[in-house]
Design a binder for these strands. Structure first.
Lengths: 146, 146
DNA sequence: CTAAAGTTTGACATTGATGTCAATGTCAAG
DNA sequence: CTTGACATTGACATCAATGTCAAACTTTAG
């Protein structure tokens, strides 16, 4: 394993856009390439394509991927996730066009979200408390006390 | 569907304990009986047994079941979940005995929890904002503005 | 006693999220 | 050109969470 060939270099386009490829994206987000493709297949992401067929990503995509991964891990079903992300884009644009059915679906999920947040928060506090009480308080270095 | 037979009645024991059976529990928590058994099998729950073999639950179990279900839906892996619940009990008792390895595992999960909470919160806000902006603001009746 | 509803255990199917493998193409270094 | 790292697509495997079904027992209504 003597690293002879340098890891792939992000190719800086003349416009200054840093076109990442999937490997770089994976490294930056901690999300396996396999999953990135999966999320794209599920309609949660879109990726540009280099002339050779490679997927290309922007810095903005890095954030999006991280967010998608985090939400998936939080148990948000991919369908809902897609709707949410689409909404954020539309909201950023301007036209809050939102059919009744979708609105109801969202309203229903809203309380579910509240529950999850509450549960996670409680669990977080539990973990913090336990770590703080044991001799492993040092491990609390990260995650500021809020 | 002419309901002739009454739904099972919780049998009040001489001690005043309300011994629920799995069906009642399911109705109160919204968690399918199948899942309650599953969670028990996974070591996330314990249930008393009536002389006839039926599982019996206390009011405290109702809360616990609801919490377990919510956390599972939030993407907490069952192994971690078990650890957390056990910790809460021990913490309630007194002896915060916590081997190093477990502590590290928890510390690692802690930041993950922070992330999830942040993501969910953001999503919640997004949904609220969208609902509020559309004509479906009425659906916001539940979920207080915090 | 009988029927209906509830419960038990256990087996099997499914769905979603991921891991893994395979065959092939691209690209940069030597 | 050859090699090695990375990418692509697609098939297959795995794991957790749930749904579904079946056979047998319990309880309660009539």
């Amino acid at each position: 394993m003597t690293g002879t060939t340098d890891p792939p270099r992000a190719r800086t386009t003349p416009t200054g856009t840093t076109g990442l490829r999937i490997g770089e994206l994976a490294r930056r987000t901690g999300v396996a390439p396999r999953l990135v493709r999966y999320y794209e297949q599920q309609g949660l992401l879109r990726a540009g394509r280099a002339p050779n067929g490679y997927r290309t990503y922007t810095d903005a995509d890095v954030e999006r991927v991280a967010r998608v991964a985090s939400m998936v891990r939080s148990g948000i079903p991919t369908r809902l996730l897609k709707v949410i992300l689409d909404m954020e884009e539309q909201a950023a644009a301007e036209a809050p066009h939102c059919p009744r059915t979708v609105a109801e679906l969202l309203a229903a999920e809203l309380s579910g979200l509240e529950d999850r947040i509450a549960c996670l928060t409680r669990s977080r506090d539990t973990i913090r408390a336990v770590l703080a009480r044991t001799e492993h308080a040092a491990l609390l270095s990260e995650a500021p006390a809020r």
